[in-house]
Design a protein around this nucleic acid. Structure first.
Lengths: 371, 371
DNA sequence: ACGTTTTAGTAAATCAGCACAGTATTTTCT
DNA sequence: AGAAAATACTGTGCTGATTTACTAAAACGT
């Protein structure tokens, strides 16, 4: 070892000379960032490839001296292990799949999910994972979500914002990969969601406290197994001793202003019109408010409106929407953390549903009921 | 060949039996989606690995018969080539890096860039590429943008929405990878951008046509080499024979309502207050409008405001912002297409700046100047 | 001084594919 | 009929890492 270190130190200074020659030959002062392989590094160190690999990966059977020397040389040459080669051997890619199929078509521009995703991505990166979006139309050949995941060898998947009834999603969930879902609970799988029960209860109570009694609620996803929000709304109303006429609880679609617009029109046409309407979400609320304005009604003087999500952008518009803020950062972060745990400690990590508190934002769109 | 096909047909039916046995042994009716390797496939076909590979990759020297047989068997076994192993040999990953470092902190939730990115992603996927976000804080160890790209072996990079003066960005641009930028031109590199000159000219002319003469313009990026928008604004004003006082052209930051708010306050405090303010972008306009409202002024009766970008969400708010819509879909799509060309036909693809037309949206925030 | 343990390193196998060179076998041409 | 050419397939090597099994040398105890 001692001699080989000496040799490599010799080689090292030789390299320096070559390097400085290069600097003069092409007129750039930076070393060309061509990828250095472990083989070149081992040659530069005067050690075998295996030893270099061990030194870099903290194996116990290399001397401290060698370890440091290898590390230093690696740093000097700008060596970065090829993620590809490493993945091939390790069977891990340090890539997380993100299934983000948005039926409403907003994709990455989705008001609620894109900040969630941003937080997920940040936390994933902090833990050394890159993310890969999962689709089923890669190039010319179709593949299912699961096939895409296996093709790219992602270490785990986060399922966000999609049709949870889709057979392809079910296939993915029952597949071999660790899965975390957001806003939907699958049996025996981990999930992160807002505490929608509490959130909706708080919102409803707030609206009640302003004196409203005729409150309508437009439900987002009809198909959703857990329409916790409307359940919570109904329960809170019942507890307040108010019964909700059947026509006050209507079905619509999440994140779809046009749909909300239609449904709102129907609500406005009712004989006993509600004094307040709870929209499926902030974005949909915009559609609802449009139809209210179109009917010549003022918000909140003639009718009150509440949203859900707490889209920051809308908090800067007038009138400021009364809504429930979902903690997108906490949701995304928790999902990434959970998924990393499921991947890294599959034995000791248990499946759970993580509930993130949300917060009422009393804006300007819920006022007193008209006299 | 003929015999080997016969053999493999025999083997095939044998496999079917095994398979059906499996179906009975574990009580699931689907075949476990464990990744099938080319080796297993070759065994199932009774052919060598090379032949199978050739059959799948459309090499000329396999018979039509064999090709179809291999394809069919592959489909039956659910074989998918491992992207990892293929990348290792080919030196290509079919992954595109996306550098999306947003100083304003909105990340994926950015109002203008996230739809651009969505379009980029869609087009990339259509062409068989996945995308990988490039950062410099992967896990515990820092790396530069270029290092991250080399580590993940992306085939090319799209640079969006970042500080184009950052030395790391410059390193990436001068690196060995094909690069396409959005909204910033580097010499000898391809770029996609809105035709901001025409867009801003149209906006300015529109404002002039409403009778405004005292028009202020808040510039987005001070550092930007090509502050085309403000140049175009000034030129249009000059052509209309109006000279713009120095204090009407002010610096701020893109996508930052708070900054716009401050700057707007200063504009409002001027002795000869402008009758119309052009904001850096729609989102910043929200901040500007806030400070206008805080000053007790009405929009557009007392003062007019224009944005830039055409964020769809804001078009659903009242008052509807007068703005210039950037064609995010065309921009993202063009960028992906260009990058794919640069990767796939490096010789015959030339570097160019692609200019996408944008469109004036006459909203409600630019009215007549107060009398 | 001898055998045993520990330490520090190396060679070779492996991952899953692709590409090149090579080899039978058949077909074509003169 | 014999040489040349086309066809259809196989074997080997290589991509860049990790890991297992193995070996040489040093340290140690008796």
């Amino acid at each position: 070892m001692r001699t080989s270190v000496k040799n490599s130190l010799l080689l090292l200074s030789f390299c320096r000379i070559i390097n400085s020659l290069n600097r003069f030959s092409n007129n750039e002062s930076v070393v060309l960032p061509v990828a250095v392989t472990i083989k070149e590094l081992s040659a530069a160190c005067g050690l075998s490839v295996s030893t270099v690999s061990k030194a870099l990966n903290d194996y116990p059977d290399v001397s401290q001296e060698t370890r440091e020397f290898v590390r230093a040389t690696a740093a000097r040459l700008g060596y970065r292990p090829s993620a590809i080669a490493r993945s091939l051997k390790l069977g891990r890619t340090f890539n997380l799949g993100v299934l983000y199929a948005d039926d409403s078509g907003s994709g990455l521009a989705h008001n609620y999910f894109s900040p969630v995703l941003e937080a997920f991505k940040s936390e994933a990166e902090r833990r050394g994972y890159d993310i890969t979006f999962i689709t089923h139309h890669m190039g010319s050949n179709q593949m299912t979500y699961l096939e895409h995941c296996l093709y790219r060898n992602v270490d785990g998947v986060c399922i966000v914002c999609c049709d949870f009834q889709d057979p392809e999603v079910l296939e993915l969930v029952s597949g071999p990969l660790p899965v975390v879902t957001i806003d939907h609970v699958f049996h025996d799988h981990s999930c992160v969601e807002s505490d929608n029960r509490a959130g909706m209860a708080e919102l409803t109570q707030y609206i009640l406290s302003r004196g409203h009694r005729r409150i309508a609620c437009i439900e987002g996803s009809a198909a959703s197994v857990t329409s916790v929000r409307s359940t919570s709304f109904l329960r809170t109303m019942r507890e307040a001793g108010i019964d909700v006429p059947e026509e006050y609880l209507v079905q619509s679609v999440y994140h779809n202003p046009a749909a909300a617009r239609q449904v709102t029109e129907r609500l406005l046409a009712l004989d006993s019109r509600p004094t307040c309407i709870i929209m499926p979400d902030d974005y949909a609320a915009l559609g609802g408010m449009e139809s209210i304005r179109a009917a010549g009604l003022r918000i909140p003087e003639d009718i009150s409106v509440a949203g859900y999500d707490g889209v920051p952008l809308l908090q800067m518009c007038r009138p400021r929407l009364t809504t429930v803020r979902q903690d997108t950062v906490a949701i995304g972060t928790a999902a990434a953390r959970k998924l990393a745990h499921l991947i890294e400690q599959p034995r000791i990590t248990f499946q759970e549903t993580i509930s993130i508190p949300c917060q009422l934002i009393p804006g300007e769109t819920v006022g007193l009921p008209p006299a």
